[in-house]
Amino acid sequence: MKLYRDLTIHQKQIVWAWTFLALPVLFYGVIRFYPTGNAILISFQDWNLLGDRTWTGFDNYSTLFADPVFWKVFKNTFVYLLLGTPISLVISFVIAYHLDKTRFLHGFLRMLYFLPFMTSAVAMAWVWRWFYQPVPIGLFNNALASVGIPQINFLNSTTNALPAILAPAVWAGLGFQIIIFMAGLRAIPRSYYEAARIDGVSTWSILWEITLPLLKPTIVFLVVFSSIGFLRIFDHVFNMTTNNPGGPLNATKPLVLMIYQTAFSSFDMGYAAAQTVVLFVVLLVVSLLQLRLLRDR
């Protein structure tokens, strides 16, 4: 105790700072950085979970880049991203923009939109899977049949399956995005709109020249956040294609699902780790690129 008492105020502050920092440092070190480092290490090794780890250098990576399935999966992942992010952002903005102006049942409507976000992805995926079944089970095909439109093969078609899986994924994320957009809209002072009304600015100009530019921080956040979400899509795909995960013919398989299968079906940990490292690099590059492009000039 005497030792502590003899310290200067500045030294005591340092002691306390490190005391409080110790927990997060330990957490990040053990739970986050150690596994990340380990994954990178394993990606240069050959390991089946039980046997010895053997050093293989860049073998896993060269196998990966030569694997046509990897490139198919890589492309799928970007299709999820490039369709999912803009579509979900446009839909959620349009809903938030109008919901913000609605007084009637405002709280109830907001709750309805938020509900899917709180629901389990597994349960949702199975409900949507039922929607997509052929006649006489599936909701959509029944509806189509009742007005005389031919059946659509949703989940069993290599062209339709990916959009069919993307739809519930977009729908599930809307609630969150709407809430964030509405918070952003609320933060814009009313007097900006009133000044524009007095100046006779059209609704369209107000939207493009006032609302959207002032929402930029919100948009940047949502673009990055939802991009990361779509790049890591897994549970919707896995649950809607359980008989043949990622099928038909790898048409819906995203990178995370490929990693999962390589690791826990083929037990090829080194190969799975190499895919993980690639996903990590992709996420990093996409996020940094978006932040840079959308940054305030």
Partner: peptide, 15 residues
């Protein structure tokens, strides 16, 4: 409409 009233307004927070 405000724009047709031939007025202009200066707001407290300048807007």
């Amino acid at each position: 409409e405000p724009k047709d009233r031939d007025i202009a307004m200066v707001f407290q927070n300048y807007a």
